[in-house]
Design a protein around this nucleic acid. Structure first.
Lengths: 100, 100
DNA sequence: TTGATAGGCAAGCCATGACTTGCCTATAGT
DNA sequence: ACTATAGGCAAGTCATGGCTTGCCTATCAA
């Protein structure tokens, strides 16, 4: 579970895909492909991007929803919280919960 | 720079090393080796652990200080902040800076 | 129905990275 | 001085992972 998260983040192209999903959510595979090619000069096949998205989805960092022949991808930053929770800052030992 | 950070976090053994440094900071190489072997049943050579520590240090996640023939290792969680800053939560758009 | 578009599956290639082994250096104790 | 301890360097092995290629399925438009 945590393994898949860190594995997903370990690749540079996947991190750029996350960057693009921050800028515009709900992108399709082809849209991500063209952005990687145009904006980032990344020469990568459509299949390569598809495999990256699968890894990101397995890590919970990307949610996908199918509509007709399109498949839209959304970013989910929730799993990233686990990282800072696992190795907390020594000065701020715990993120305080406001008790009501 | 960011590449080294995520590369360092991508390995399971390295993440466990970080866990151990949370529990006790200033550990020596041999101390980390024995903890990995005892507590986590990880069969890894001393040299393997040494290489892991080098990767963690290159990522800025571990600081080391030499004293005599001992080399002590300390955890530094500062680089982890960059992760949540790079892909912020959609509800909390920006971590507010308190203007004085 | 045919063609075009969006995406998926599977096998194969190749480079990166984790790990070991062997040997070397430096500090501390007797 | 000699020995043990703590650590470093370098080469070599082997598996994982990123990427491509080729082919297949599904949806929409004409």
């Amino acid at each position: 579970m945590a393994d898949e998260l860190f594995r997903a983040l370990s690749d540079r192209t996947r991190r750029i895909i996350l960057d693009e999903l921050v800028q515009k959510s709900g992108q399709t595979l082809f849209e991500i492909c063209s952005r990687l090619s145009m904006k980032h000069r990344l020469a990568i096949s459509r299949q390569g991007v598809s495999q990256h998205l699968a890894v990101l989805e397995a890590a919970g960092l990307v949610r996908s929803r199918r509509e007709g022949r399109y498949k839209y991808h959304d970013l989910n930053t929730a799993p990233l919280r686990h990282i800072t929770e696992r190795w907390p800052a020594p000065d701020a030992p715990e993120p305080e919960e406001k008790t009501p």
